[in-house]
Structures are given as C-alpha cells and as structure tokens.
Design a binder for these strands. Sequence first.
DNA 1: CGTCCTTCTGACCAATTGGTCAAACAACAA
DNA 2: TTGTTGTTTGACCAATTGGTCAGAAGGACG
Lengths: 209, 209
Amino acid sequence: MTANARKPRTRIQQKNTAAILEAALDVFSSRGFRGSTVDQIAKAAGLSKPNLLYYFPSKEAIHRELLGGLLDTWLAPLHAMKAEGDPLEEIMAYVRRKLEMSREMPRESRLFANEVLQGAPNLEGVLKEHLKPLVDEKAAVIQSWSAAGRIAPVHPYHLLFSIWSLTQHYADFDVQVRAVLPQSEAGDPFPEAARHVDAMFRKMLTPGG
Amino acid sequence: MTANARKPRTRIQQKNTAAILEAALDVFSSRGFRGSTVDQIAKAAGLSKPNLLYYFPSKEAIHRELLGGLLDTWLAPLHAMKAEGDPLEEIMAYVRRKLEMSREMPRESRLFANEVLQGAPNLEGVLKEHLKPLVDEKAAVIQSWSAAGRIAPVHPYHLLFSIWSLTQHYADFDVQVRAVLPQSEAGDPFPEAARHVDAMFRKMLTPGG
DNA sequence: CGTCCTTCTGACCAATTGGTCAAACAACAA
DNA sequence: TTGTTGTTTGACCAATTGGTCAGAAGGACG
C-alpha cells in the first residue's frame, strides 16, 4: 500500500512520520510556515528531503497534519471545564492547566500563534468549526455562573480571551519575558507567573468583594 | 549625494521612503520577515523592485529601519507613566493607551509580535538596551506604589506582562477574536474589551478590597 | 540649449526552494 | 534463491527570490 495513507502501517513508517512531525513542530513553531524549509525539517528529522517527501506529499501537508493533530490537545483544557463543578475552581483549574501548557508545550503555543498572527490562512475553517462552538458552549456556562451570582459579573468571551492571552504570553513571548525579567527570575518565570495570574483571575471572579 | 543616506533630502525621496516603509509595515506584519518578499513590498509601495532597492540596500535594511523607527512610538505609553501621578490612574491610563494602540496600530503590534515570536533575531539588542532599562525603571515605580500601599501588592514585572498580553491580544490575535466572538461584537471588539480589561486591572490593583 | 544629478527600468544572475523520478537498496516471505 | 513490497537516495527541474547593473528617462539650472 502507499505510504501516504491515513494510518502508518509499518514500524518504520510510524517512527519516521513521528520524527517528521516532531521536527516540523520544532521548525514551524520557531520560524513560521513560510519561513521554514522542507530541508530544515528533513535534516531535523534525520532524513533526506526526498525521503521526507515519501511520507508526506508536501510541506503544506505536514503543516496541516500538525495543526490538526494538535488541536485536540490544545482544546482539551477548555473541554475539561465542567458546568457541574464549583465555578471559581473550574475556571481557576482551567487557568492553571493553560499556564502549565505554556510551560510544557511552548512550541505548540507558538505554532498556533504564528498561524493566527498571520491571518490563520490554514486555520480559519478549524476556528469556526471547532473552536467557536466549544467557546460558545463554555461561554454560556460562564454566563450562567455569572448570572447566578456564583462568580462576579464578567463578559464570558473576553474572560476567555484574557485567560488565553495571559497564559500563552509566557510561551509566545518567552524571549521578551526572559530578556526583561531580572536575572533571578529569568531562569524560570513560571512560578511567579502562576502566582500573579492566579491572583488576577481570583480577584476578577470572586463575587461581592 | 547617494540615496541611501540617513535623512532623505529631496521630496521624491521622502515620499518614496515613506511609501516603502508603509508598504513594508503592511507586508512584514501580515507575513513575517521571512514570509515577505521584496517584490510584494515594492508592489504595495507602487515601485519596481530595483527602484525600491535604490532607496534601501536590502530587505533586511527595510526591516531594521521599520523596527527602529517604530520603537519609540511603541514604548511611548510606558514612558508616559509618571511616578508623580496617582498610582491607580497612571496604570489605568497606561492600560487604556495600550489598548488604543492595539486598535489604532494593529500592524505595528503584529510586527513586533512576529519578531518576538520567532526568537527576536533582529530585536535582541533593542530588547536589552532599550526595553529592559525602561521596564526596570517603571517596575521600580510600581514597586514603590505597591510598598506604600497605594495599590494592592503586585509583582511589578508580571503586572506589566499582563498589561501587554491583554491589550496586544486584540491586535495580534484579531482573526481569532473576531472568529470566536458573537456576530454582534465581532465587528468591533474594542468597547467590550476596554470594559473587561479596565475591570480586571482595577480589581487587581485597588488596595484593600 | 546642454549639463549634472537624481530617479527609474529591463535584463540578468546566482542561490534557494518545493517537488519529481528512476533506480538502488532493504526486508521478508515463499 | 527469487519475487514482492516498502524505503532511500542522487540527480534533476522549474519557479521564486534577493540583489546587481548598465543605461535610459526626468528634472533643475545655467
């Protein structure tokens, strides 16, 4: 059977497609789609360019596969926010998970950031078909919590935006954060970041106050 | 005299260099440095490629000039935050100005975002020589306000990060914001954004509470 | 008019890049 | 061993791209 099919069959195919995607994540996330070359990805994956193109039909195909494959991972934390839980704790857990992801998966964050920043040419469909429905659903949940007085009144969509921006900032603008922070913190900005972000949303959401 | 000198002399030079920088801002900010071509910039500026290269020696030179020329504008709002003013109002004014800039100058925001996102290859010097000293200075001011109990205790650096991320998010991730927001708000997210962001920082910074 | 300087262009070039292809090589089963 | 299938490569190609250059056009001034 042909190599470019949906699921890899042989061990070599599994190993190589995995290596390619890993390498592509590295390259695409740090240089953007247009700024990356197939050769860079091939070299990073330990393959020759024609060999890489034996597994994926084109540079764009690698990119699409990457984005698609990562999307679920990326949206999982928001999925995990349940209407049944304690409102403040659900949201704070979401914030915490997002910040952890910025720390553990900065390349993924930058990959999406690069894409969105440049007008999301290969992501517009996904944005409206996957992200928007999910956000609509969770915004409604937040709205209901807010209306019930279980958290302070907030604009649910902008609350989500502020969670995304605050947490992803530490992955996407990592160089800036480290360049600006005093020596003592530049090594690992995350502990203080966690405290700060936690405080911000706690104050924002605690009712009454 | 040669055309590539510091200050444009003739009217034609003024007009064309300005057109080139304007075009370059458009192109670089939406496609990143590596993703942009000299031809695109030339076309957008209404010039031929050789003619553009008569005014700037290289693609990189345009990029450098752009970044350098924009830096002052970009840092002006932070400069304007004065230790003598009312702490809460100084910070809130800074937040407001930054959000206005996201609305009025989204291309500039994206230009810097693209650069930082890709490791700030042409910005590292600037980051440490211009941005860091300024941030250090203003962080000290915030620190003193905080210590004097005039605003709630905050980590000054991370407070600045959160101002940057929250405000610039609306420029940098514009496509996503509009894709996710309900129809009614997608046309102009800024009024609600302003309310939300204002509330966040006001709650964060109001002492006691 | 002619002269000098600036502005502009078409033709060109070398390097890079995404992608192809025929053929070599490996793995393994019969 | 041989046949079959999956894997890898060197050589190659067309398109794009950053940049050059010689000279043509334009403008200002005597």
